[in-house]
């Protein structure tokens, strides 16, 4: 929950120095509604490298602002999602993608949730079969008595 804390501090440290980093004012880049949708959809999938646990949509770091501007420019030029992601991974590597691409080294990651459910279900079915295979041991008398006492009060 305190994820932004360190990052805020980081920005503050930079600001507290004698001089601040220069942020040039850039003209706004107009986008068509489709391009705007692509731009809005892309930002949450890209990870900020300064505030590393924020996406480009959220981050207030100045590099994030620069990268947003670059992405916006690429969208305006008519580049598609793949090309824009490649532009960023060519520079920063796969780290910049919050949604890891499906490839050999991430196959297990994407399969894991479904494998886990599958394992769980298999265990459950195996367990149910085991309880049916072993002859139903009658609960011992004292257990029955215990359960009766407990149930009387529930």
């Amino acid at each position: 929950m305190k994820r932004r804390v360190a990052c805020v501090l980081l920005l503050a440290l930079a600001a507290a120095g004698a001089r601040a980093e220069v942020q040039t004012v850039k003209p706004e880049i107009p986008l068509t509604p489709q391009q705007e949708a692509l731009y809005r959809g892309l930002l949450p999938e890209l990870r900020c490298l300064v505030c590393q646990n924020e996406s480009l949509a959220e981050s207030q770091a100045s590099l994030a602002a620069d990268l947003r501007y670059e992405v916006r420019g690429l969208v305006a030029k008519g580049e598609d999602e793949t090309a824009i992601k490649k532009y960023l991974t060519d520079r920063y590597g796969d780290f910049v993608l919050y949604k890891p691409p499906l490839e050999a080294r991430t196959a297990l990651l994407w399969a894991a949730p479904f494998l886990l459910v599958l394992i769980g279900l298999t265990m459950l079915f195996a367990y149910a079969r085991r309880t049916r295979a072993t002859p139903a041991t009658r609960p011992p008398a004292d257990e029955a008595a215990l359960r009766k006492i407990l149930d009387d009060h529930s």
Binding site: P44, D94, W110
Partner: peptide, 15 residues
Amino acid sequence: LGKVSVGPPYFNPVF
């Protein structure tokens, strides 16, 4: 095997 990021765009659809 390198660095990757696993974030909301992974967890949301998987959940």
